[in-house]
Design a protein around this nucleic acid. Structure first.
Lengths: 346, 346
DNA sequence: CTGAAAGCGCTTACAG
DNA sequence: CTGAAAGCGCTTACAG
């Protein structure tokens, strides 16, 4: 019932060596003869001894912990994507012997919340942190980078002269957006609208830029009435369509949504007005959300490998923490069209 | 670019007091005059000082971290429920000023994985841990309890003489199961089958017991051919129905699934064989999974408040860690029927 | 190859 | 009300 309170002094005594030697064995120093090592390891195993992490860190070792910071607006967080992200980071960190301290930031502009995040870094609980869902160039993250902490940010611009302690990762949103327009154009659509994502996020901007460029390349003109504001949420997709319908102007024959959640919301609004997808209007998403395949209609979208991206981000971050040479500071992942049932030929 | 490496000695010097006093201010000792306190706090704020967590822990303070251990079989973990659990624990721990170290256990019988978990406790990285998805009386968890660690286990039996360092939480599965049978019985069903959950889990057993009892109370007999094995996964629901259909015996008019995932799998298998739900057979689930409402047909099920349960579990665990008096060692949550479209009157 | 000793940055009796 | 000092459990130059 009593917690075994054995420490390195005790192990040293039982093995008949000094604490220095015990420490050398634990830290795999090469200058310990096999015999001594085995003797010490035996005592360690017999007594269920694990070195106290705080003492190790205080003595200069790494915390072997990375922070995972999820910036999620107030909304309920039953998101399946979020879960994939978390699990991906945890599992890959684990493979490197690292632990993950997850923290949720409900409002990245709230001073107190920012202070909580800073505290985690300054208290040295973590060796580095990954941020997901941040605005591009979010000031408090920039500050942490300036302060020298090892930081990885998903969906973020890499500065022209990147600091050695910063890495970013992105999908090739430009390519993805061009694929959506190319596909719709191929189906004969010329009247194509878009629901934008959050323009404070890098992906919101690059997707919109990609859309504009692709429309031009395909010789199509953009009708500003059909370019709707959104913020990557289901609700924003729903509301943007409601607003569009309320204006009682003509509809495009196809809409490119900034992501699948937005597409779901848009389809929900359309359905409520008796407008059928894809019979009356085609909708294409972005992300290939876990639900898109099961959605009615099954959503045509751009597939993106979040799990793999976070895996790479985690490995890169750990490499950076351990000061291993890193080939690059930016991870870019390709993405590609998945055709399902939400778009039709015109 | 250089990390500010200020410590309490430096703060003390700048404030013109001793480190003892700085520590007293940080730890809210009552015997520090307001003037001294303010002077110190000012210096702390000016210099972005946060006490080193490792040093605090080593000196005897709590790590203010709880471990969240998810036991999930090898399968892909894009589960929306898992995400709710994680987020619920993180947010409520955060409210108490605690951090969460999440760890995934792919195989609770693997010695190395168990050792990894033990390490986290023995290294004193965490003050206590919550386990989700464990078998009832999982040996390695029992051992951690014996070793005196503060442990909370979801879906677990409380021993007759509970240790002071153990808490458990459960849904009233018995009640839930009785509601499913009562509802089906009310719809006129007499030929009711069941797909069991994992019988190593407490909920698997209590749901099955509840089913048997409820059938008896409603004066219905159980046909053993219609009581199928399962393990709480979509796949097991699918496979159990495939196996049943392969036997080419009669079907029940209704099936109670151990949870919604199992129900989804069962419906998928039935659909593949052209058997319609609810027209040809009624299916009722358990959990009210986030997808159940959007499922075709929308799933009739038992609603359970996972998020609230984990919230309570987290609060209880922290109370236990802080040695606050705890009214009870077991959390039991009620659950109730949600009628949708997957069952029909006979 | 190995031990004695200093040091990591805190907290907290202890003494005044 | 406050400071000097011991102690938490490690690691790692340093010396031999």
């Amino acid at each position: 019932m009593k917690k075994s309170d054995i420490n390195s002094t005790e192990i040293a005594r039982l093995a008949g060596v000094s604490r220095s030697t015990v420490s050398r064995v634990i830290n795999n120093y090469s200058n310990v003869p096999a015999e001594t090592r085995d003797k010490v390891l035996k005592v360690i195993a017999e007594h269920n001894y694990f070195p106290n992490a705080s003492a190790q860190v205080l003595a200069g070792k790494r915390a072997r912990t990375i922070g995972l910071f999820l910036i999620e607006q107030g909304r309920v967080s039953g998101d399946i994507l979020t879960n994939m992200l978390i699990v991906s980071v945890i599992e890959h960190a684990s493979e490197h012997g690292y632990y993950v301290l997850t923290h949720i930031i409900r409002d990245a502009k709230d001073t107190e919340m920012i202070q909580n995040v800073r505290e985690i870094f300054f208290q040295r609980r973590i060796d580095g942190g990954i941020f997901i869902g941040a605005d591009n160039r979010e000031p408090f993250i920039e500050q942490l980078v300036d302060e020298g902490f090892v930081i990885g940010v998903v969906d973020q611009e890499l500065p022209e002269h990147p600091e050695p302690n910063r890495i970013v990762s992105n999908f090739n949103n430009d390519s993805g957006m061009k694929q959506t327009v190319a596909y719709l154009s191929g189906l004969g659509h010329t009247q194509i609208g878009a629901i934008n994502g959050d323009m404070n996020r890098l992906s919101g901007r690059t997707k919109h830029e990609g859309f504009k460029q692709a429309m031009g390349m395909c010789g199509l003109t953009i009708n500003p009435d059909w370019v709707l504001d959104g913020d990557f949420n289901e609700t924003s997709g729903y509301e943007s369509i409601q607003a569009l319908l309320a204006r009682k102007i003509g509809l495009p024959t196809a809409i490119v949504a900034a992501n699948d959640s937005v597409a779901f919301g848009a389809i929900r609004a359309l359905k409520e007005h008796g407008i059928r997808v894809p019979d009356d209007i085609s909708i294409i998403g972005f992300d290939d959300h876990a639900l898109s395949e099961k959605h009615h209609p099954a959503l045509t979208t751009i597939r993106v490998d979040m799990s793999e991206m976070l895996k790479r981000m985690t490995s890169f971050l750990i490499a950076l923490i351990e000061q291993k040479p890193l080939a690059m500071k930016e991870i870019t992942m390709e993405c590609s069209l998945v055709v399902r049932d939400s778009c039709r030929r015109i």
